[in-house]
Amino acid sequence: MPDGEDRQIGVRNVQVKIGDIVARKSYRLDLLFRVIDVIKNDNGEEIAILHGDEVRLIADANCNDLVVVDEKEKNSRKVKERELIEQSNDLFRQDYQLLREKQEYYATSSYSHNEEFFHIPGRVLHIDGDPIYLKKCLELYSKIGVPVNGVHVSEKEMPDKITSLLDKYRPDILVVTGHDAYSKHKGGIDDLNAYRHSRHFIQTVRNARNKNPNLDQLVIFAGACQSHFESLIRAGANFASSPSRVNIHALDPVYIVAKVSFTPFVERINVWEVLRNTLTREKGLGGIETKGVLRTGMPYKKHNQQ
């Protein structure tokens, strides 16, 4: 075996560069990260800026603490990840089918007839600080049929841009997410200065609520890994992360807002029913009682094709 390589865990001690998928030795290789930048600190040491590969966490690490993960190890972890995602997809499909059946029952007052229905799910505006995660989310929205507009905006720019984006897209549901992290070395758990981007998410939610204060006319999900959950809810978010300051999965916001998008506007959403479809559940996500935004109409007329 070549020096500096461990084929059992699929990592290599090599020079770290931007774009590499890496893991941290000091954290026993628990998570995979993408290297988005490499800088030098005041001591001349190379420090890598890291974005979680599957979780919405931002971190930095000394390059000497990092190992590059090979394709075999990445693929092995991806298989496990796909299994978790498919479990959430199955739960969501079951919920959606029940929602459709119940809504059609109420719409017809339980009478049988031959007319067909059409559904208008809630429109989503998803602004994301990570373009790669945004692409993953947009693919899942498309797969499950949620109408969405996605915009990549850096976390620091979100508060200034949110009002114009709301004017442009006029969504029923707003997602404000990207990367975040809590550092106990920078302050206590309630000190916003100890969080990488929570204050930017919080101000974005406040600005959105100034534009639309009704919690049921604009439903907001906000936050990322380890975000300050309580402040996000107080700022006006319906759903947020992270109650236990844990990492959340890149796709968790999609499962939250899809449930809202496909729940009829005459129904209130049970928070646990929303969280059960996510990959992180109640430790990473929480929220308040909220109305759905889907509307059902009839009749649905199919146009004859010439």
Rank of each mutant, 00 (worst) to 15 (best):
D3W: 12
G4I: 11
E5H: 06
I9H: 14
R12M: 10
Y27Q: 15
D30A: 13
I47S: 07
L50D: 06
G52R: 07
D53T: 06
D53Q: 14
E54N: 07
L57I: 14
N62R: 04
C63M: 10
C63R: 01
V67I: 13
E73L: 13
S76K: 14
K78R: 15
E81G: 01
E86F: 15
Q87T: 06
S88Y: 05
Q94R: 07
Y96I: 09
L98D: 13
L98R: 13
R100C: 14
K102C: 08
Q103F: 15
Y105M: 13
A107I: 04
T108I: 00
S110M: 08
S110G: 11
Y111C: 00
H113K: 00
N114R: 09
R123G: 05
D128P: 02
D130M: 02
C137P: 01
C137F: 00
K143L: 11
G150S: 12
V151H: 04
V153S: 03
S154R: 11
D160M: 09
D160N: 15
D172L: 02
I173P: 10
S183G: 07
S183R: 08
K186C: 02
D190R: 05
Y195V: 04
V205G: 11
R206G: 01
R209A: 06
N212S: 12
I220K: 05
G223Q: 09
G236I: 14
S242M: 03
P243M: 05
S244W: 10
A250T: 09
V257H: 01
V260I: 13
P264I: 05
V266W: 15
E267S: 14
R268H: 09
I269A: 01
N270M: 04
L275Y: 03
T278P: 10
L279T: 09
R281D: 10
K283P: 00
G284F: 04
I288M: 11
T290D: 08
K291W: 01
P299S: 08
P299I: 06
K301V: 14
H303C: 04
